[in-house]
Nucleic acid binder design. Structure first.
Lengths: 227, 227
DNA sequence: CTCCGTTGGTTGACATGGAAATCAAACGTG
DNA sequence: CACGTTTGATTTCCATGTCAACCAACGGAG
């Protein structure tokens, strides 16, 4: 418990070896990388084991089977976003637009810091028609609920245009974000690279925010809209 | 050559058997259904053959391999959308919003008429990181180019807000549409059913259009914006 | 007019390869 | 020594893709 770091055999640590001797986490991390690079269906468990520098069987020991591994990858990483988004949604004293802005910021930050994680979440999970059924997954549904609550707030305060459905718009909002990431993820791995002609990440972010501002905001002053 | 239809043995035709003796098309049609129901990776060629009421080997005879089948499904169906969208983009005398509206209409019509086709195109193709690489596919790129051209028109005529990038917004626009379909497709097969709480197809369509109108339109009159 | 060989579409049992999952043994730590 | 961790060769399974035979129409020869 209280053992100092020295308890771990130093000789075993090469610069390329992760410091953690927690192989469970190593596998999870390797899975993200391998799934991102070759796709869930395109990779073998042995690829993950190799990447994690771990025996084949250990993957099964910890995660049961391939689906279990993907599920673990998802749960572990998504829960972070879910919590962050939920926190934003609940935060008092902010307007609808403030919150949306923070969420967009959150998403793009995550994408720049952990592009592989975002790639796996978006590509391997967002569309895998079976396995969790996406929207049926409580963790996913929770995020949608949070977003929807933000738009409902906007509707109450008049910040959201009349005639826009809070639920429908929450789906579209998430879709915009998701597609933005997919467009980068599918064309290059570098987060600063270009899509199509000349779209940069910053450019995309600005456009998303502009959309939110122009598309949604009624003529209500920020003060009265804050909750 | 000039032989009448009577040449075909009538007895072989049962009411449940498709009239076409063109098994090639039968296979394509069956593939759409099977891919939509079980997913590309989740189904076997034998499933397709069975659905098409055709021998296993015939699928290979016509389409070479499983990937070839998916590619054929995509090409066949996507080309229809591609052409329609391109036509809208080129049509003279319409404002940017007119064109966007037509495209939205087009998409929702397609979804209501051929939900399975849309499901396959969106789910199995949109995210399959290998296989055509989506955005790299010329047929897909062509549609994006058409959409981008519409937004560029808007930029020229001032119909599109200043500071919104035509290319970035074209990605987001497509993403909104795609997500709208995905949200229906993942939750139910009936196009009239509800998602989340109470979102209907009509509701979603209205919201998308509203977004376009509010988010994009500058203060330019329609007349001057038409091209 | 009938018969048979040819051709193209069609069949489905089978061989193949490859990946998932198992499991019994080795390890090492307390 | 005992128990949790780790190993990786072995087993199991099954979907893909192959292939040799089948059939139905046609046309030319007898």
């Amino acid at each position: 418990m209280a053992s100092p770091a020295a308890a771990v055999p130093r000789a075993a640590r090469t610069p390329t070896t992760p410091q953690k001797d927690d192989k469970r986490k190593q596998i999870l991390k390797a899975a993200v990388k391998v799934f991102a690079e070759k796709g869930y269906h395109g990779c073998r468990i042995s690829d993950v084991a190799e990447e994690a520098q771990v025996a084949y069987g250990l993957v099964y020991h910890y995660y049961g089977n391939k689906d279990g591994l993907l599920a673990a990858v998802f749960d572990t990483n998504w829960s972070v976003f879910a919590k962050a988004i939920n926190d934003v949604a609940e935060q008092p004293g902010l307007t609808m637009f403030d919150k949306l802005q923070q969420i967009v910021e959150l998403g793009f930050q995550a994408f720049e810091m952990f592009p592989l994680v975002v790639k796996v979440l978006v590509l391997e999970f967002g569309r895998n028609s079976r396995l969790g059924e996406a929207l049926e997954n409580p963790a996913v549904a929770g995020v949608f609920a949070s977003i929807a609550r933000i738009f409902e707030q906007g509707k109450k305060t008049g910040e959201l245009y009349e005639g826009i459905d809070p639920y429908a718009i929450s789906v579209l909002f998430m879709g915009m974000l998701e597609t933005a990431f997919v467009s980068f993820v599918l064309t290059a791995n570098s987060s600063r690279s270009k899509v199509q002609s000349h779209i940069t990440v910053d450019n995309m972010k600005a456009t998303v925010l502009s959309m939110c501002q122009r598309a949604l905001l009624g003529a209500v002053s920020k003060k009265s809209a804050a909750i």
